[in-house]
Amino acid sequence: MSTFRIIAGREMWLALRNRSILISGLIFAVWLPVMSALGIAAGAGEEVTILAGSIAAVTLPVGVFMGYIFCADAFLREKRDGTIETLLCAPVSLRRLWEGKAAGVAVPAYLMTLFSAAVTVAAVSTLSGTPIAAEPLLLLHLVVVVPVWIAAAAGLIGAAQLALGMRENQILGFVFIFGFIFLIVGLQQVAPGGPGLSWTTEALLAAAGAALLALARVIAGKVTKERIVRTIP
């Protein structure tokens, strides 16, 4: 088995057994969709594409948040406990370690986000009285755009957690979450084609997600072992 799969596999194993993170994730996965479904159902009428667009808009912040909470185990805990130092001595490059961990964060975060999206669809369908099932663009959003954004969020937050000290990390967690949310909301505002789900919005979001993922790779490439070891508390 490749070291990438070994590293990612362990992070997934740990994530799916971390009860406190799973519980906060599940609460968030249900609470946010239900809250937003109330607003969506009240404001959007019965137009299916508009309802689907509102659902799509909710899934991205949920995904980014899920990426953030799973990073706490894969990156931040390993830094706080100092066990990252032992891992850095393994015959694996730092890039491979980062990729494996980011993937191990992104997969459970994605599963949680899909669950949350299912809850949102069910809640909006029920509250609006308009069944929203297989909207092709919504499916495309969930299968392509959402995972790219989650991978970018996991990669960026993970790289930052490796590179920063504990106190900076506490502050930066919030900065990242709000930064991502502003970015998502901003992109949805500037996207042409109005509030509904459209090809242009999806293309813009997908491109922005891919750019963020590339940025995460560049930033992760600049993090050194010296930097990581010297910021272990």
């Binding site: 194993w13 130092e85 032992t86 015959p91």
Partner: peptide, 26 residues
């Protein structure tokens, strides 16, 4: 290498911890 913190994941079993490193080191 053995640093002072042992490099082990608390939530994993003894076996699981060793199996992980066995994989990393081939």
């Amino acid at each position: 290498v053995l640093f002072e913190n042992n490099g082990l994941a608390d939530r994993m079993s003894a076996d699981g911890n060793l199996a992980y490193y066995a994989g990393l080191y081939g």
